[in-house]
């Protein structure tokens, strides 16, 4: 295969991916705030996040040093991550006409601020956030979590 035809095949594959994208998985939220370099990783591909970018279940959101990102999820949950963060949107099932669902996310590293939305309001087990060391059950609240910061100065 010549370099040109490889390029063409790649372009065709990208077009197919772009066309197929929306029908494969539902959008579970939108990027609303971007500062610095933020990427969304989906199916092994990494794309730069921009204001308005839709996110889907399984997406991994990454920020580099000095970067941060804010997401509004479809149940009104706000997730915002600081620099050097890795946030995986494991699952978000939400039926807006029935107001129930389930939200699971993982902060692999970095910092995250959360304002819970309608899913956490509905039942104590409906929203969980994982970090490498702990599992947080969210009962409808605002909180912040880090996955690597040094221990508190005055515990």
């Amino acid at each position: 295969m010549s370099g040109n035809s490889k390029l063409r095949a790649g372009a065709v594959a990208m077009i197919f991916a772009a066309l197929a994208g929306p029908s494969i998985a539902a959008d579970i939220g939108y990027v609303k705030v971007v500062k610095g370099a933020v990427t969304v990783e989906r199916g092994g591909k990494s794309i730069p996040a921009a204001v308005g970018t839709a996110v889907q279940a399984g997406d991994v959101i990454r920020t580099i040093a000095n970067a941060s990102v804010g997401l509004t999820m479809v149940d009104d949950t706000l997730l915002s991550a600081g620099p050097n963060s890795v946030l995986t949107l494991d699952r978000l099932d939400y039926d807006p006409s029935m107001r129930n669902g389930r939200l699971d996310a993982t902060l692999g590293a970095g910092t995250l601020a959360v304002v819970s939305g309608r899913i956490a309001k509905q039942s104590p087990e409906a929203m969980t956030l994982r970090t490498p060391l702990a599992i947080l059950g969210v009962r409808g609240t605002e909180f912040a979590v880090s996955a690597h910061d040094p221990v508190l100065a005055n515990p």
Binding site: A113, P124, T131, P132, L133, A134, I135, L136, G137, V138, R139, G140, T141, E142, F143, A144, V145, S146, A147, H148, D149, P150, V151, L152
Partner: peptide, 20 residues
């Protein structure tokens, strides 16, 4: 390590985080 902090509610909702 990590830290979890409950923040003050803006709208006075009942709030809790269960750290397991």
């Amino acid at each position: 390590s990590g830290t979890v902090v409950l923040l003050p509610e803006r709208d006075g909702r009942a709030a809790a985080v269960h750290v397991k």
